[in-house]
């Protein structure tokens, strides 16, 4: 009996190891990656097995430099001592837009009388990551009353990697587009002449397209909820 148990335990361990090996691809934490190459999402296996919320470390790239953030903290490099595993990346359904696409969003459909909430963000922006869980909650609570478009300013190379990985980790369901422009200035001015591009930036437009709330920096959720409630005439 004990022999069978031992075989079972050994099989279980081997099976788990092979299963994980097939699912995960070992990648050195500090490996240099050429520009434009898809970047993996890193998970701490030890904490994953312990079934704690997975602390996802996302690697993004800015001006050719890798930027890492783990548990909402930007770190200079991934800890080398920790095993890092590359998981299969989720399929991206994030649409790329240009300046004209942005203007189309801002012009709105005249038949659509719902207020419009727009949030400008990027995975490299700590204030954006800080406020994102609140925006996800707001989206969940007001989905049937307002339109919400989330506009990321990440680089286009991140559209199928870092951005969807971050959204998946946040359990975000709002529509997300990636604004890809060579020069950000016309896009920034198309949104607001008084905005200089500081992220995050959040705008709420009423049914007529008038800005009724704007905030630069991580939102205070109660303030945004109050502004939305005023437009929709009730609390969620």
């Amino acid at each position: 009996m004990s022999g069978r148990l031992a075989i079972f335990v050994v099989s279980l361990v081997l099976g788990l190891s092979f299963g994980l090996a097939a699912f995960a691809q070992v990648a050195p934490a500090n490996a240099a990656r050429p520009n434009g190459q898809a970047l993996p999402v890193y998970l701490d296996l030890k904490r994953l097995i312990n079934c704690k919320p997975p602390p996802i470390c996302v690697v993004t790239r800015l001006g050719g430099h890798p930027v890492y953030f783990c548990d909402h903290q930007v770190v200079e490099a991934l800890p080398v001592a920790q095993p890092c595993f590359s998981f299969a990346r989720p399929e991206s359904n994030i649409r790329e837009i240009d300046l004209e696409g942005l203007k189309k969003i801002l012009q709105r459909d005249p038949k659509d009388t719902r207020p419009l909430l727009i949030n400008f963000w990027a995975t490299w922006c700590d204030g954006c990551r800080e406020e994102f869980p609140d925006l996800v909650k707001i989206d969940n609570d007001y989905r049937d009353k307002i339109n919400f478009v989330s506009i990321t300013l990440d680089e286009i190379t991140e559209i199928k990697t870092t951005v969807p990985a971050f959204l998946k980790a946040m359990k975000a369901q709002m529509p997300v587009v990636l604004l890809n422009v060579k020069d950000p200035e016309p896009a920034i001015h198309a949104v607001d002449a008084t905005w200089d591009g500081a992220l995050p930036a959040t705008y709420l437009y009423d049914k007529d397209g008038k800005v009724v709330f704007k905030y630069f920096g991580a939102i205070k959720p109660a303030e945004l909820r109050n502004a939305i409630d005023k437009q929709v005439g009730s609390k969620p």
């Binding site: 400008f120 990027a122 922006c125 700590d126 204030g127 300013l153 950000p184 200035e185 920034i188 001015h189 905005w195 200089d196 591009g197 500081a198 992220l199 995050p200 630069f216 920096g217 991580a218």
Partner: peptide, 10 residues
């Protein structure tokens, strides 16, 4: 002048 995306001053 010129506008560009950047991090908000904390």
């Amino acid at each position: 002048g010129g506008a560009a995306f950047g991090c908000t001053i904390k």
